[in-house]
């Protein structure tokens, strides 16, 4: 057996380097795969195309703004969101309090600003949880198939079949029965837990079908032919190629989880005072819609804008990552 170096120098292959005249796409896709000498991965391409989308820019700016708000609420308001002054109860917006005061005479503007944190924490952590749990289970189910897949899939179906609100009410009213008052951290984690437990089957299904498709690809065959271990195939070959749809789902789901948090709080099983959250504010406002509509309007508006921003971000990411669009 000769050494490749020796072969290369000895061979001086006639064919070699001939194709280098243009390091171009093959023309089958006109204009596609233009190579300007830069190294660009698929993620890089997605990023380039993302930056050109106005929807992405708008949603990213909103999300950035919300993040700053969650981290440093003091930048936006110096009013204590829990400070109640009953004499100001239900006052409508004015120069002093832009969004007016609520039933207890608390500043709604300050409460909306401070409520971002709870919403984002729930949204981000619940998304992380569902994506991690669902992806892992989905990857293994898709890769191994057979009875493992059958068991995991049926297990997921059980959770998927539960109506979300009902399931969450059951879980939360068990761990967090009315009348108890745990600290805000504990309540937030209970809400996150219930969202993750009831939502992971969706990511699991997305990941499983992506893994099933990726598993059939020839590059996985080639890796197996080289003797690659299952762990290597799962994490080196399947995961990077299945992540895109889950990420897209994740960014859209983040918005809906924030809305879910509000729903649960509204129903009285989620976050509760003393935690400041939009859901709690909406819940407080429900009785007084006719008398003090501003109490509902501002938190609900903030919620709608936030959810919309994440859903738009998800849409933009999907368009950028979808290979069929390019």
């Amino acid at each position: 057996m000769t050494d490749p170096t020796a072969a290369a120098s000895a061979g001086k292959m006639e064919t070699r380097a001939q194709e280098e005249i243009t390091a171009e796409g093959h023309g089958a896709r006109p204009g596609g795969g233009a190579d300007d000498g830069k190294q660009r991965s698929l993620w890089g391409d997605a990023w380039v195309s993302l930056r050109r989308r106005p929807i992405f820019i708008i949603s990213a700016v909103i999300i950035l703004f919300l993040t700053v708000m969650a981290l440093f609420p003091g930048l936006f308001t110096s009013v204590d969101p829990t400070k109640a002054d009953l004499s100001l109860a239900r006052q409508t917006p004015s120069a002093d309090a832009w969004f007016g005061y609520d039933q207890q005479g608390r500043d709604i503007y300050a409460r909306v600003i401070h409520g971002v944190r709870a919403s984002l924490v729930v949204g981000v952590l619940a998304t992380l949880g569902t994506v991690l749990l669902g992806s892992l289970v989905g990857l293994f189910a898709g890769f191994y198939g057979g009875w493992l897949d059958a068991i995991l899939s049926r297990f997921a179906d059980v959770f998927f079949g539960l109506p979300f609100v009902l399931g969450a009410i059951v879980i939360l009213s068990t761990f967090n029965p009315p009348g108890t008052s745990y600290g805000p951290v504990r309540i937030i984690f209970q809400v996150i837990f219930s969202i993750v437990v009831l939502s992971w089957p969706v990511t699991m299904r997305i990941m499983r079908s992506a893994a099933l498709t990726a598993k059939q690809q020839d590059y996985v065959k080639a890796a197996r032919a080289l003797g690659a271990s299952p762990t290597r195939i799962i994490f080196r070959h399947l995961l990077p190629n299945t992540l895109a749809p889950v990420l897209v789902y994740g960014s859209i789901a983040l918005g809906t989880y924030i809305a879910l948090e509000a729903t649960l709080s509204f129903l009285g099983v989620g976050l509760r005072t003393p935690v400041v959250s939009w859901g709690v504010m909406i819940s407080d406002a429900k009785e007084l819609i006719r008398i003090a509509p501003h109490m509902l309007l501002f938190p609900a508006g903030a919620l709608a804008v936030t959810v919309l921003a994440f859903v738009m971000l998800g849409d933009a990411v999907r368009d950028a990552l979808d290979p069929k669009m390019r």
């Binding site: 991965s41 698929l42 690809q217 020839d218 065959k221 080639a222 080196r236 990077p240 190629n241």
Partner: peptide
Amino acid sequence: LQDPYTSLNPRMT
């Protein structure tokens, strides 16, 4: 393998 488009992992250099 046959298909040069699917036989290489698109996420690897």
